[in-house]
Design a protein around this nucleic acid. Structure first.
Lengths: 194, 194
DNA sequence: GGTTGAACTGAACATTCGTTCAGATACTGT
DNA sequence: ACAGTATCTGAACGAATGTTCAGTTCAACC
C-alpha cells in the first residue's frame, strides 16, 4: 500500500497546515503529536515530512504567515488621528475575529519557538504595534488625544482589543459590528482629551 | 542510596510547587517533564509523587490556589462606584504584577486541565469577573458610568489590565505606582460619561 | 540501641515521541 | 504501453514520557 487515489500535494499541503492549526490552537503545540496531525489529514505521520521539514517549522510558518498578513492587510489612513484610530480599532477586531485560532497560536506558542524563529515573530509584532503607536503619537501631537504614555497605551489598547477573541462566539448576543462599535467607544474615550 | 541528609517534607513540598511554577510558566505545562521538575528540586522523579498524585494535579493546585487567593484578597469597597473601580484597577494590577508566573499559567494552561478541573477554575474566574461587573453596573445605575454593555466592558477592562504582565519588567522605565496610575487613567476615561 | 516510619533512590514499566527511509502505488507524459 | 516521478505506507530508530515500587537511608522515639 502506498499512494492513495486522487492524492495531490496541492490538496494535502494545505490540509496539513489546517490540521496543525486546529490542533495547535485546541491543545497546544507541545501537546499535539505529528501522528495526531497526520490522522486528521488522513495520512501516516511520515507523509507530513513531505510538507514540512519538522514540527517546529510547521508552527513557525503558521505564525509568520499570520503576522505578515496582519501587517500587509493594514495601512494607516491619511488624515486625522481619530479616524485613523477608529480604522485601526475596527480593522484589528475584524481581522482577529476572522481567524481566532491563528491569533490564539500567535500569542500562546511564542515560547515554543526556537530563538531565531522567535526573533522573527517578535519583529513582526513590534512592527504592528508601531502602527498603532504612531497613530497615538500623531493624535497627541495635534492635541486630539491625551495619553500619559503612548507606548503603554499602545500595549493596553492592543491587549484590550485582542481579548475579544477569548469570549466572542458566532451567533452570540452581539454581532461583529456591534462589538466593533462598543470597543471603539471605549478606545475613543480612553484616549480622549477631557 | 536513598534519603538525603536534612531532607524534609516541609521543605521539599514547597520546592516542588515552586519548581513546577517556574518551569510551567517558562516552557508550558505539556513541554515540562516530571524529571525536569525533579532536577530543579534536586530529587529523583519518583520522589515528586510523595507531594502530588500526578502531574495534572500539580498544575491544577497551582491554578486553584492562585484564583482563590485572587478572590479572597479582594473585597468591593463600599461607597461610590468610581472609587470602587479605582480600587479594583489598582488592586488587579498590583496583584498580577506581584505574581506574573501564576498569572501566566492561570491564563495559558486552561486547555491542559481535565474537564472537571477546568470547570472549577472557570467558576473562580467567573466569580472574579462578577466583582468588576457589579461595580460597573452600580456606576451605570447611578449615572456615573456610561458603558454600552457591562459584560463586554468587564472583559475588555480585565484583558487590558492583565496585559500589563506581558510587558512590565522590574526596574524598567516605569515603576508599579506609575503603571497603576496610567492604567487607571485610561479605565476611568473609558467608562466615563461624556 | 534497637525499632519504626518518613523521605528518597534507582531501576523498571509500557507508551509515546519526532523523524527517517526503503519500498509500494498511482498518476503524468510520451 | 511504458517509464518516470510524485505521493504515501509501514516499519523502524533511539530517546523521552508519566508513573510505580522494592529497597535504602536517615532521623526521631522508646
Amino acid at each position: 500500500m502506498a499512494r492513495k487515489q486522487g492524492s495531490h500535494a496541492e490538496i494535502t499541503g494545505p490540509k496539513v497546515r489546517q490540521a496543525a492549526l486546529r490542533l495547535f490552537a485546541r491543545h497546544g503545540f507541545a501537546a499535539v503529536s505529528m501522528r495526531q496531525i497526520a490522522a486528521e489529514v488522513g495520512v501516516q505521520a511520515g507523509a507530513l515530512y513531505l510538507y514540512t521539514p519538522d514540527k517546529q517549522t510547521l508552527l513557525f510558518d503558521l505564525m509568520r504567515d499570520h503576522m505578515e498578513e496582519l501587517l500587509s492587510d493594514w495601512q494607516v489612513p491619511e488624515g486625522c488621528a481619530k479616524l485613523a484610530l477608529e480604522a485601526f480599532t475596527r480593522h484589528h477586531i475584524r481581522f482577529h475575529l476572522a481567524r481566532p485560532e491563528l491569533v490564539f497560536i500567535a500569542y500562546m506558542e511564542l515560547r515554543n519557538l526556537e530563538p531565531r524563529n522567535f526573533a522573527v515573530i517578535e519583529g513582526l509584532r513590534k512592527a504592528y504595534e508601531d502602527q498603532l503607536e504612531s497613530i497615538l503619537k500623531r493624535g497627541v501631537a495635534t492635541g486630539r488625544f491625551a495619553v500619559p504614555d503612548t507606548k503603554l497605551a499602545t500595549l493596553a489598547i492592543i491587549a484590550m482589543l485582542t481579548g475579544v477573541t477569548t469570549w466572542y462566539r458566532e451567533g452570540g448576543r452581539l454581532d461583529r459590528d456591534a462589538v466593533e462599535g462598543i470597543y471603539w467607544d471605549m478606545v475613543r474615550k480612553a484616549v480622549a482629551v477631557e
